[in-house]
Every structure is written in structure tokens, then in C-alpha cells.
Design a protein around this nucleic acid. Structure first.
Length: 203
DNA sequence: TTACCGATTCGCT
DNA sequence: GCGAATCGGTAAC
């Protein structure tokens, strides 16, 4: 199976998002190998996208997004979760694709150990933080080159996907009019939730 | 230096 | 369906 190259991913994040659907992400660790088929992604573009982490310029946190395409950008949210992105666009121009959900196609046993709360196998990587969970991705994998032959996390071209669906991004309150969330039909696609103030009502 | 709040998940009702 | 857990980046004081 062909590993994706930096050139494959050095394109507009929206195009990269569609390209990544059906692709397979593989992580290797002393514990074993887990491989996931991506079924849901979101595009984030710096500069004109207020929802992007790099909208307001370069900081130590988003530094990886300003680097070459094909690298892994991992960030910490809500004090307890990690989310993974694949850097897109060309060197020096920030952009990324958020990996939202996938199907575990190899290493099911290890995936179940890493996510014991999952009630079914399709739930194992259903959601961005669950996806990083089954793959064992955390801060240590930030900046990994997914296109390197010997990387601990790699991205491979998958089988062609049937029909790509699209809609507004999850949990994002701005730019609701741009349908930059893409997914294919799968039980592992996460539920849509609107952005803005909803779950945070302190009285 | 401090305060606010988010690209979420889980458990309980 | 709703609220808690939890912490680092960012902006404002």
C-alpha cells in the first residue's frame, strides 16, 4: 500500500480533506500496531478562517501548522483530550485537516484496551479525541512526519471512497456557512453538534 | 500575572 | 439531554 507523500498533501486543506477520506493512518508503538481508516475530517485554513488555530499568527503551539505539509499537529483541548491534524498547504502557509473519526481495521485488541469505554468497535475511534486515543497519539507525536518511511505514525492511500458528504464543522461557532466537514457513510462518523455556548452554562 | 474558555467525552437523569 | 472534569493558550489588565 502506497504511503502518501508531502507533495500529495501540499494542497488546499479542503482538497486535502477530501483526499484523506478513506486513507489509512497507522501508529506503531511498543504495545503494537493500530491502523484506522479515516471516515470523517474537517478543513482549517489560516489567514481567512477565524476558526483556525493559526488565524491570529504563529505561536509556539501552532508552529507545526506553519511548517511543511504531511506533518502531524497535535493539540490539547478541554484539559483532558488530544486532537490530531494533518498539516496541509505549502511550506510557510498554514492550513490543516482535523481527523475527526475512523474505523479500526487493524489492532482491534490494542484499540479496545486503549478505549475500554467503547461499547462497540465502531465507537472506538468515533470522535477526534477517541481517534487519538486508539492510536496512542499525544503531545509526544506533535510534529511527526507522516510521510517518512520510518515514522511512528504514517498515512497511507486507501481504497477509493464512494460518496463524499459535507456540512458545517462540529463545535465551531464561526464560519457556519462554509461546509468544511467531510465524511463518508460509516457507523463510526461522529454526531454533529453546533458550536457556540451550549454545554457551558454556569449560573 | 490573571482570567476566561475551547476543533470533547463521559456518566447520570 | 445536561453538566462536570480539567489545563494551557491567548488576551487583557
Amino acid at each position: 500500500m502506497r504511503q502518501l507523500t508531502r507533495d500529495d498533501l501540499a494542497i488546499d486543506p479542503v482538497d486535502a480533506a477530501k483526499l484523506l477520506l478513506g486513507c489509512e493512518l497507522e501508529s506503531r508503538s511498543p504495545q503494537g500496531i493500530v491502523r484506522v481508516r479515516l471516515v470523517e475530517v474537517e478543513a482549517y485554513r489560516g489567514g481567512d478562517d477565524p476558526a483556525s488555530h493559526c488565524y491570529r499568527g504563529r505561536t509556539p503551539r501552532n508552529d507545526v501548522m506553519f511548517g511543511p505539509a504531511g506533518h502531524l499537529y497535535v493539540y490539547f483541548v478541554y484539559g483532558m483530550h488530544f486532537c490530531a491534524n494533518i498539516v496541509s498547504l505549502t511550506d510557510g502557509v498554514p492550513g490543516a485537516v482535523l481527523l475527526r473519526a475512523g474505523e479500526v481495521i487493524e489492532g482491534l485488541d490494542l484499540a479496545r484496551v486503549r478505549r475500554p469505554s467503547a461499547r462497540s468497535d465502531s465507537e472506538l475511534a468515533k470522535g477526534p479525541a477517541r481517534l487519538t486515543g486508539v492510536l496512542g497519539i499525544d503531545r509526544a507525536q506533535n510534529g511527526v512526519d507522516l510521510t517518512a518511511p520510518d515514522a511512528s505514525v504514517r498515512i497511507y492511500q486507501g481504497d477509493p471512497v464512494d460518496e463524499i458528504r459535507s456540512g458545517p464543522r462540529v463545535g465551531v461557532a464561526v464560519a457556519m456557512d462554509v461546509p468544511w466537514r467531510f465524511w463518508v457513510d460509516s457507523p463510526a462518523v461522529s454526531a454533529y453538534r453546533r458550536g457556540g455556548k451550549r454545554a457551558r452554562q454556569l449560573s
